[in-house]
Design a protein around this nucleic acid. Structure first.
Lengths: 348, 348
DNA sequence: TTAAAATACTAAACCGTTTTAGAAATTTTT
DNA sequence: AAAAATTTCTAAAACGGTTTAGTATTTTAA
């Protein structure tokens, strides 16, 4: 089974009385193209098998400059959206014989830079990145070095790179339009910090699109950025403010699952009832939404598809780089779906 | 920033007119102990810094036989329990300068073996394993090779190894006792497959302990194993069976969060009401339980503490191995907490 | 004044692969 | 029968570090 992996190419070569070169070629499937006789090939393969030979990855990596590993950076692997994404990425890369290194950046720019450096240092063959950064310096230097990477989930408008995203703006538009079609006019949008992140920006745009489209005035007062460090209290504060101003919206659109959880808690603790007192629609479907009472209408992202596309593009890029052909940039924008449940009240 | 890392030790040595040996020593903090003059040390460090030297991990790993990476195998990183565990492990190892490789075994014995092999092949310095396997062959061979590893969450009774677990039996006992103290007598236990896993076994034992302690007869009919592939339907079937037999329990104890989710769905769809028709207590606290109506009483595992302990023990072991001292085995058993909410009816 | 010790450093081996450049033995061509 | 081509295989370099076993020079001790 798992043997004391001390068997090296040299050992095999020695016992067989052939050269390391030959053994290496055979085991890498290059026996035929190098004119190694069938018989010798067989002898090598058999012995390698029976000695349970496993090539030393360090030696291999050192020589070839590749690790067969790819890196994934997300903001927090314990967020269900990212953990499911990571799982899909894991499955996809392992199908192609790659390993995965998952890292959490914690929405910290500094940490993200460190992780990026670490992954490059570990010589990963490519990186899938959901970036927290506002600037593009770091990805630009990746680009300049011709390092394969793909941006997912969060992207930069003004920067050309491989990207796999969801059509956040349309997704949000549809969600808010759904609210509007139920007769609502006073609709608030809650965004999570840092608000510069493309998903948040786009979803907020989509919210505004929907209002505009239906000629509902856009009110700054109904657009709030919530600090992710203290969601529950921040949200509670917002509700209290609305209430005391006698400006309570009839519906809220929430752009993130963590934010939604905070909202549900706050709403409950303030004694409000969904959807009677307030309607809600959230981005990111999580188990909770399906089982909450009432079940929460939400925007579903095609997580598996995001992962598959990102991996495919990345592996393509790695291959292209190996052949030192010139890279092309691929953009993929996937559509979301809205799953209607019972969290939006139909107004007269 | 992230520079084209082509700078090697030799480059630094060359420009400074010293040997690679010296540079290596200085950069590894062994300058003093090897009597390198302060002045030279400074020159080396400065140049390394300014050239943005980053040691090649492959070369280093090849020579030293270590990767500064540890492996974590769980059944599924998208399960919130494991994703939170993974996150804590990530934080803990990175504080000690290690990197982490997270893998999902999917409750497949074959996959688990493959992952183990892969990690060993990648020369990780140690492994944290939440095993799916029934047999101990694989961990025995780790043991025999003196490979540092620690078993978490799921362990083997008949096998000596480093372990960090939770006191599942007592946790379950307390949970069921809480149900009993509310006047229940017809209490069922739902376990998830594969049922041989220690957590499931122990929690079921705890359930029986509680019944015995309070002189309630133990009835096989109320102990069900649910296939994890089709939880919702399996659970629904069980409820229907109980109903048609006129044997509906007044309370159920559920040993896993995924199972609980299936139960909540099934219970809702069968038109039953919690806790009026049926009371429920689950293991593993998840967001859903806090926000469900009614909020679900559950047993909380000290996830962060599990992770920290496991990492500490593992890193200790790695250190011990480096000094080729003889390994000692550490066992850690952490207590759970029960968080009482509103899912258990107080019977007259 | 010479031997021993301390200081400051280095050449070369080594880790285990892959790859380059070519060699030896056999077969084919002329 | 010599030249050319084919088949089968190999020695040695390279990847970039760490470590071992020294060496040369200066200082201290006897």
């Amino acid at each position: 089974m798992i043997k004391n992996k001390k068997v090296s190419l040299a050992d095999i070569a020695m016992t067989l009385g052939v050269s390391k070169t030959l053994v290496s070629m055979v085991l890498n499937g290059k026996g035929d193209e190098n004119g190694i006789s069938k018989k010798t090939q067989e002898r090598v393969m058999e012995l390698a098998e029976s000695m349970n030979y496993k090539p030393n990855q360090f030696a291999r990596g050192l020589r070839m400059g590749r690790s067969n590993t790819i890196g994934l950076i997300v903001s927090d692997i314990s967020n269900p959206f990212y953990s499911r994404l990571a799982r899909s990425v894991e499955d996809a890369v392992s199908e192609s014989g790659y390993n995965l290194m998952i890292c959490s950046s914690d929405e910290s720019e500094e940490k993200e830079m460190k992780l990026l450096e670490m992954l490059i240092n570990k010589q990963v063959d490519g990186i899938i990145l959901s970036s927290t950064l506002d600037s593009t310096d770091h990805v630009e230097s990746l680009q300049n070095e011709n390092f394969p990477f793909v941006l997912i989930d969060r992207i930069y408008n003004d920067f050309e790179a491989n990207t796999v995203v969801v059509d956040n703006r349309t997704g949000a538009l549809e969600a808010v339009e759904f609210i509007i079609n139920n007769g609502h006019k006073k609709i608030a949008a809650l965004v999570i910090s840092p608000a510069h992140i493309s998903t948040q920006v786009d979803r907020l745009e989509g919210y505004k699109d929907a209002l505009s489209k239906h000629s509902i005035p856009i009110n700054q007062y109904y657009q709030k950025v919530v600090k992710r460090e203290d969601i529950y209290n921040a949200v509670s504060q917002i509700f209290i403010e609305w209430k005391s101003d006698h400006m309570m919206p009839t519906a809220i659109f929430v752009t993130n699952n963590q934010l939604a959880i905070g909202c549900l808690e706050a709403i409950r603790d303030l004694g409000l009832s969904i959807p009677k007192d307030i309607s809600i629609v959230s981005f990111d479907d999580i188990d909770l939404f399906k089982l909450y009472s009432p079940p929460i209408t939400s925007v579903i992202q095609p997580i598996n598809s995001i992962a598959r596309n990102a991996v495919e593009i990345l592996l393509d890029n790695i291959k292209i780089k190996d052949n030192s052909e010139s890279l092309i940039k691929t953009h993929k924008c996937l559509q979301t779906n809205i799953v209607v449940r019972n969290s939006v009240l139909k107004l007269a």
